[in-house]
Design a binder for these strands. Structure first.
Lengths: 330, 330
DNA sequence: CTGTTAGCGCTTTCAA
DNA sequence: TTGAAAGCGCTAACAG
């Protein structure tokens, strides 16, 4: 049982093999601006690094520069679905293109104080769904951490714009199909309310613009019987088309309809959000609104980079990226 | 526009305020074994740390000890669903209880070579769905990184056991309901095959034990028309009950049935896996198998800790944590 | 154009 | 029981 622990390959090893100093290795591998290196040296260093399988120590670099290349993403404490998952994948890819590493932390703020986390990691930026307190925001700012807040409360609310657009698309689709009295199906979970609000605002805006009555909002639990109640209340009010917070809520409405031997779109048109896999498998197949996650991910990455450099966030070409997937329920 | 950048609070600051040396601060805050510290000193240090809002720099500690407290989780490149999401939440909480930080990295191995990632992070452990090459495994081992492989290929396959049990539960439920010819609904995505195999193996095992014919496996795309084809093939073979790879595939089978004006469980019984939110909203509500993610998360965390200490993995009380959620489809 | 050098903040022998 | 000091691997002034 020999101790098979290998010593780490350091920049000193690379320097030795290439016959240069550690500083030179650093310059070459980081393409340090305003440092010109002869082509020959550059190649020797690169080759030596490759031969040794050298990867710089993130810890040492972070310690030295005072800033890591990590972008810390704090997830909300509500259940995340497929769409957030694919979102993160795209975001990670987009950030990697900027030399940044995405680190996702599920939001169990109870287990580990949030301040401890970012002080330990010294991330280049923090993307957060949760709202921060003012002292926390100040502390992060003064530590040079760029903060991208996805909730409405904080400055920024970069995600708010597309969210409203999502609601608009739903309402427009229904209105164009001739529906005049619209309903809005709220999620049962209070934690996602702040996500639902901007979407509903979009629906309201469309109704106002078209001089239609204000949409009738109803909370729809993810349960067929409860959903059936909501459906009856809508029908009693003359509502003929419902925008649901997301596909799951929409599925609940569909289940509520089926329970009373009714069905979409004849008895009540339903449109969801997200286009989850179950949407096209529903009875009837669910019409929904989908967002191009790759574009959103790239935009979020650009926002992070801009924030790191103190520049203003780029504008998202919002109109193109959210579109209706027409199926049979509306 | 003053420069509001605040200097970081270091252990030296704490030492100064407490009137002790940096070494003492380190001893106190880490509860260093076989170092006894007087109660008075201990309190003074603790209070000073709290007053200054001190959090140790992870970078410095990692650089010094050669190992970070990060557990790196490499996600597979196939779309992750709700169940993986909640799984990660629980895992993160469980690891936090051991003083470890979960870092999830979406699996875009193209964007950033995997070796670069772990060499940069120097994680205490790596949890991976993807299979590694032998040289990679050797490199990690010799760097002292504990590897927990979730795929069957590598040693360990800690997740494989419950997976087979999931299939068993499905088959048992169907068999107890009197079904003798079983079908298995494969996912269309080849990337999740290695996850499907152990589940099917569980179904096979039950059939063999009960002297039932081998289950008829069919690939079911997430599309109603294609699923209807599969349903007709099963019915032609005399299959009366189907175990689906997961709830989405099960939903597809249900959609296929509906398309031919047939329905579960009379024409074909269907049982899924995961209990996604859409399951109880399906038509009819989907019978499925669910796993207690909190227990699995805690077990995985225990496995990580054991691996870090070179101990054997604890055994999972598997039987209790996976159970059938009976609804109407089977 | 390249090398020398001084730390970043922490842990951990060793000495007092 | 506490303190002094070395050094983890890296970057960035500054010298040459």
């Amino acid at each position: 049982m020999a101790d098979s622990t290998t010593r780490r390959v350091t920049s000193a090893d690379v320097a030795r093999l290439a016959g240069v100093s550690r500083a030179t290795v650093s310059y070459v591998l980081n393409d340090t601006p305003r440092q010109t290196i002869s082509a020959g040296t550059r190649d020797r260093v690169r080759e030596a690094a490759a031969r040794l399988g050298y990867s710089p120590s993130a810890a040492a670099r972070t310690l030295r520069t005072g800033r890591s290349d990590v972008v810390l993403c704090l997830l909300p404490d509500w259940p995340i679905g497929t769409e957030v998952g694919s979102n993160l994948g795209h975001l990670s890819a987009a950030l990697a293109r900027h030399g940044l590493t995405l680190v996702v932390h599920p939001g169990n703020h109870a287990d580990r104080p949030i301040a401890e986390l970012w002080k330990a990691i010294t991330p280049a930026a923090v993307i957060a769904y949760t709202a921060f307190t003012d002292p926390e925001i100040a502390a992060m700012r003064s530590a040079g951490v760029a903060l991208i807040a996805l909730s409405r409360r904080d400055r920024g609310h970069e995600l708010a714009v597309p969210q409203e657009l999502v609601g608009r698309r739903q309402a427009e689709h229904l209105a164009q199909a001739g529906h005049t009295r619209l309903g809005y199906a709220y999620p049962d979970d209070p934690r996602v309310r702040f996500f639902a609000e901007p979407r509903l605002a979009g629906v309201r805006a469309v109704c106002a613009a078209r001089r239609l009555p204000t949409p009738v909002g109803l909370t729809v639990p993810l349960d067929p019987a409860a959903a059936a109640d909501a459906v009856r209340r809508w029908q009693a009010t003359g509502v003929t088309g419902v925008c649901a917070y997301n596909d799951e809520v929409a599925l609940a409405v569909l289940a509520g309809l089926r329970r009373d031997n009714r069905s979409a779109p004849d008895d009540l048109a339903v449109i969801g959000v997200d286009d989850i896999p179950a949407a096209r498998l529903a009875g009837p197949p669910l019409t929904t609104v989908t967002t191009d996650q790759a574009v959103v991910g790239a935009h979020l990455a650009a926002t992070v980079v801009a924030a790191m450099q103190g520049r203003a966030a780029p504008t998202l070409p919002a109109a193109d990226i959210v579109r209706v997937v027409p199926r049979e329920s509306a």
